[in-house]
Simulated scan of single mutants.
Amino acid sequence: MSDDTPTVEVLAEDFEDLKATVYGFASQLEHNTKKVNELATAVASGDGQDGDGESGKDKGKEKEKPKTPPFILWLPGDKYADELAALAGWVRDLLVPTYFGEVSSSATWCARWWEHPAAVARLHAAWLAWQELTNPETCGLTGPSVWHRDHLDPMLAQLRAADGPFAGCMTNPDRPQHTVLPVPPVDPAPAPPVVAEPEAANA
């Protein structure tokens, strides 16, 4: 029958490991206690804050808040045009060629999607989320997965639904039946105005 009693050497190693762990906890506790004391001292002294809790150096400055992205449909003229142009590049170069299949009555699309405010709003929201969630500095390595699951898939389901914003484009005889995904057309330059020839003066 074997003797499982630990040797003195094993006990000594376990003791050293335990001692190192306790030392680590003690160092962390000392660091945290120091930070708490510094914060308590700063709060007690007011640190230059007025009665509203705002420090003098921050007066006249806006309080730092998370930057809220613009809701594109509320942007005025030129800002809307600039934001829409940037969005259009993303839709044309990434979204359509990568994620869109054939167009049908159950998977709608309009080549002039920018004429549909509901589509613009949804596409813009997905684009903003894509910018954040494909940046490892802000989202880590799981960001793209989160973007597909929480943003892209729900957006496409709503946008391309049979009763979605493009439904009229698929059924209205005044608009083309879309069976392929054309590149958004470039509006041609307007034709020059026709100037009538002046009538010859009567002799």
Rank of each mutant, 00 (worst) to 15 (best):
C169S: 14
P66D: 14
T171D: 13
T33P: 00
G77M: 06
L87V: 02
K57S: 14
K79C: 09
R122P: 02
A86R: 07
W147P: 00
M170A: 07
E83R: 08
R175V: 00
A119S: 07
L87C: 07
F100S: 03
W109C: 05
S105T: 13
G168V: 06
A20V: 10
H116S: 05
G143W: 01
A196I: 13
W147I: 11
L75S: 02
N202S: 14
A118I: 02
H148W: 09
K65V: 12
C169V: 09
T108D: 12
S145P: 02
A40W: 02
W74T: 14
E115V: 01
G168I: 06
E30L: 12
T5Q: 07
L123W: 03
A88S: 05
P185L: 08
R122Y: 00
Y99W: 15
K63Q: 15
S104W: 05
K59S: 05
T5A: 00
W113Y: 08
E54P: 03
V120Y: 01
L128H: 09
H31F: 14
D153G: 04
L87R: 03
D78C: 03
T98Y: 11
P198K: 01
H31N: 14
P184M: 06
D52K: 13
G164K: 07
C110F: 04
A167W: 09
A201T: 09
V146M: 06
E38N: 13
P192M: 12
A85C: 06
